Amino acid sequence: MIKRLLVPFLTVVAFAGAAHAQVAPDAATPDGLVKAVVSDVMSTVKADKDMQAGNIGKITALVEQKILPNANFQKTTQIAMGRNWSKATPEQQKQITEEFKTLLIRTYAGAIAQIRDQTVQYRPYRGTADDTDATIRTQVVNKGEPIQMDYRLEKTAQGWKVYDINVLGAWLTEAYKGSFNTIVGQQGVEGVIKTLQDRNRQLANAKS
Rank of each mutant, 00 (worst) to 15 (best):
I59H: 05
T60V: 00
T60W: 00
A61G: 09
A61E: 15
E64P: 05
Q65Y: 03
K66T: 03
P69V: 03
A71Q: 12
A71K: 10
N72R: 11
F73T: 13
Q74P: 09
K75I: 13
K75F: 06
T77I: 05
Q78D: 15
Q78L: 03
Q78H: 07
I79P: 01
A80Q: 00
M81G: 05
R83I: 13
K87M: 06
K87R: 13
K87I: 00
T89D: 10
T89K: 03
T89L: 11
P90D: 13
Q92F: 02
I96T: 11
E98C: 01
E98R: 15
E98I: 06
E98Q: 15
F100V: 02
F100L: 14
K101E: 04
L104M: 06
T107P: 00
T107N: 11
A109N: 15
A109R: 03
G110K: 06
I112N: 06
A113W: 00
R116K: 11
Q118C: 01
Q118P: 05
Q118L: 01
Q118M: 04
T119S: 13
V120P: 15
Y122S: 10
R123F: 13
P124E: 04
Y125A: 03
Y125C: 01
R126T: 14
G127L: 06
D131Y: 09
D133M: 07
A134Y: 04
A134C: 04
T135N: 03
T135I: 07
I136E: 09
I136H: 13
T138N: 08
Q139S: 06
Q139Y: 01
V140R: 07
N142T: 08
N142M: 07
G144Y: 05
E145M: 14
P146G: 11
P146H: 03
M149L: 12
Y151Q: 10
R152Y: 04
L153F: 10
L153S: 10
E154A: 09
E154W: 08
T156N: 05
T156W: 04
W160D: 09
V162T: 11
D164L: 01
G169Q: 15
A170P: 12
W171A: 01
W171F: 00
E174L: 08
E174F: 05
E174H: 06
G178Y: 02
S179Y: 14
S179I: 15
F180T: 07
F180I: 07
N181L: 07
V184H: 04
V184F: 08
G185S: 08
G185M: 03
Q187W: 07
Q187D: 10
V189S: 09
E190M: 10
G191M: 06
G191A: 12
V192Q: 00
I193S: 04
